[in-house]
């Protein structure tokens, strides 16, 4: 059996247990603190290049010009940085082909809503982004519906990102894909 070093033998069990406990607390605090103190998250990286409540068609990913690391490069992206603390937001997005997605993210990167293109659901998807009940307060009135067919999605945060991803079939389809993606929009809507 290997012999323990002398300094380790001198450490009492109380000190060892204390070190383990303190290490565990530091481990938990460090893990929980990363999402709060990190400045390199996706929302922070994109904030300066995305005007508020406007859909922006991003340039095709290229070396040194990627909006985010590890973002699939065989797709075009339209993004909208939103803030619904004043107005609601009407989002329209074309779902032209398989692989197209409309996704909504909080500043911390939580993807709280995603809709993929499906055989039975091609064409333009329309939804209104509203604050969640927790944000509005328990007794606040529910935001009005624009129409009976309107889909409302509750955002858990005042700010966030709308992302429309359009996979590229190839260079020959780029202009067509870009034209379809340009139809995506974000429009502020007054609360009633």
């Amino acid at each position: 059996m290997p012999r323990l070093p002398k300094w380790l033998k001198e450490v009492g069990w109380r000190a060892a247990a204390g070190a383990l406990l303190l290490g565990g607390i530091i481990h938990i605090l460090a893990t929980m603190a990363v999402p709060i103190v990190s400045s390199g998250h996706a929302f922070a990286r994109l904030r300066d290049s995305l005007p508020l409540n406007q859909m922006v068609l991003l340039p095709a990913p290229a070396p040194g010009k990627q909006p985010l690391p590890f973002l699939p490069p065989d797709a075009l992206y339209a993004m909208c940085r939103y803030d619904i603390s004043v107005d609601l937001l009407l989002v329209n997005a074309p779902m032209a082909q398989a692989g197209w997605t409309l996704s909504l993210h909080t500043p911390q990167g939580d993807n709280f809503y995603v809709m993929p293109a499906q055989e039975s659901r091609r064409g333009t998807v329309s939804l209104t982004l509203v604050p969640s009940a927790e944000r509005l307060g328990e007794f606040a009135a529910t935001p009005r519906r624009i129409s009976a067919q309107e889909t409302q999605v509750a955002s858990p945060s005042w700010q966030g990102l709308v992302v429309v991803r359009a996979p590229l079939k190839g260079l020959a389809w780029r202009a067509e894909t870009e034209a379809a993606l340009r139809r995506a929009s974000c429009t502020p809507v007054k609360r009633s």
Partner: peptide
């Protein structure tokens, strides 16, 4: 990407500047 992700996954996503679609 899931709103109910564990703290390690959330920290990994934020620290690396990722924007994943939910694994649903």
């Amino acid at each position: 990407g899931r709103p109910d992700a564990d703290p390690y996954t959330r920290a990994h996503t934020v620290r690396n500047g990722l924007l994943p679609l939910a694994s649903t």
